[in-house]
Simulated scan of single mutants.
Amino acid sequence: MDFLGLAGKTIVVFGLANKKSVAYAVSRVLVEFGAEVIHVVRGEQQEVAALKLFPDCPVFCCNVEEEEQIIRVRDIIARRINAPLAGIVHSVAFANYSEGMRPFHQTPKGDFLQAVDISCFSLISIANHFKDLLAQQASLVTISISTTRMAAENYGYMAPVKAALESSLCFLAKSFSAFSKVRFNAVCPGLLKTSSSAGIPGYIDSYLFAEQATLRKQAVQTEEAANVAAFLLSPRSSGITGQCVVVDAGMGLNYFDAGIVSKTVA
């Protein structure tokens, strides 16, 4: 039984980088449920990886910082599909940590604006340029974080950028409601082991702490976030829009875990 109703549906996935990326995990679930996945990646290196991981799925390159490239890949996809798109996955984010972490008030303007452009505005631009390719009840899903209200020092300015991304969902859902039933939601996982997270200074220590803060004492797996994304892309989630679905295995409600507290005050 095709419970999710994804079989035969075409879904575009932006952001696959390698086997550790969230976009890979989402794509794998979608393919398992019979969806036809089209990958849009940043460059040739990611294209090679995508073709190796999903040899039966078409792959196109697009630097989302360049609006004309979004339009170009939209036109290419439009010529390939025979039916409207059932969904789009936006798993795109970037922050420049090349010079290490700085106090938030010292965030370089250029770095902050670039992060907003790639991590947030790209969703708005993709939605705008792909709107005519979407089915009336299509679903767009982006990837955020479990909370943007925690000032994690080693995540820097990306939390405010993700907050802007999450706020944008509401405005996109509202503006699209004037002519469609297209939905916009976010999957917001706790700390994951991904290739992009590996580049965040001090991330491993935070990951290990988060694992102990979960109720089950086991970190959230990328596949768990991917399963939620697949649900949000499916008709089974038709009543959900403008929402941020947290997938953190209870980390957000377990700040006063006895084991963590005892080690802190000992």
Rank of each mutant, 00 (worst) to 15 (best):
A83K: 14
A95C: 09
F94P: 04
R102E: 08
R102D: 02
V73N: 02
E99A: 15
Y97E: 05
R72T: 10
E66L: 13
V37C: 06
E68V: 12
V48W: 04
G110D: 12
D75I: 04
R72I: 00
V92N: 08
R79I: 00
H105R: 15
R42E: 01
I38Q: 00
A50D: 02
E47Q: 12
I81S: 11
F112P: 06
P108M: 01
R72H: 11
E68D: 14
H90P: 13
N63P: 08
P103M: 07
F60L: 13
Q46K: 12
E66S: 11
D56R: 14
R80V: 02
A95P: 05
I77N: 05
A115H: 03
E67H: 09
A86N: 13
C62Y: 01
K52G: 10
E68F: 08
C57Y: 05
L123Q: 03
V116E: 04
E36A: 06
T107I: 09
A93C: 14
H90F: 07
I38M: 04
S91A: 15
D56W: 08
V73K: 03
Q106F: 07
R72P: 05
V37S: 06
Q114M: 00
K52T: 06
I38W: 02
C120K: 02
Q114W: 00
P58T: 00
A95H: 08
V41Q: 03
V64T: 14
P58R: 03
G87R: 02
H39R: 11
F104A: 10
A115Y: 00
